[in-house]
């Protein structure tokens, strides 16, 4: 999805990124619970450790955070 600031929990995002250990690595953007978000696609993998065997499913539809 593309970020729309109206859906973003701005204080939550600020504080998440203040975490010195992981804040910069994770680059978190925290959404407001239940916000409507437009999803482009989902990449589905059979294993969480091996990236092969993944397929991309087009979504192009609205979901919820």
């Amino acid at each position: 999805m593309k970020i729309d600031r109206r859906n973003v929990d701005i204080p939550g995002t600020v504080y998440a990124r203040m975490d010195m250990s992981i804040g910069e690595d994770e680059s978190e953007v925290r959404m407001i619970q239940g916000a409507k978000i437009f999803v482009y696609d989902v990449e589905v993998c059979k294993s969480r450790t091996v990236s092969s065997g993944c397929s991309t499913i087009e979504i192009n539809d609205w979901r919820h955070a």
């Binding site: 953007v29 990449e43 993998c45």
Partner: peptide
């Protein structure tokens, strides 16, 4: 609610459930 503006910014969230498949959503 936990998203990242970096594609590899986050590991699978609370990803310790058994019998799950990871899905990277954009």
């Amino acid at each position: 609610i936990y998203w990242s503006n970096k594609e590899d910014g986050s590991d699978e969230y609370w990803g310790s459930h058994r019998n799950t498949i990871p899905a990277s959503t954009r």
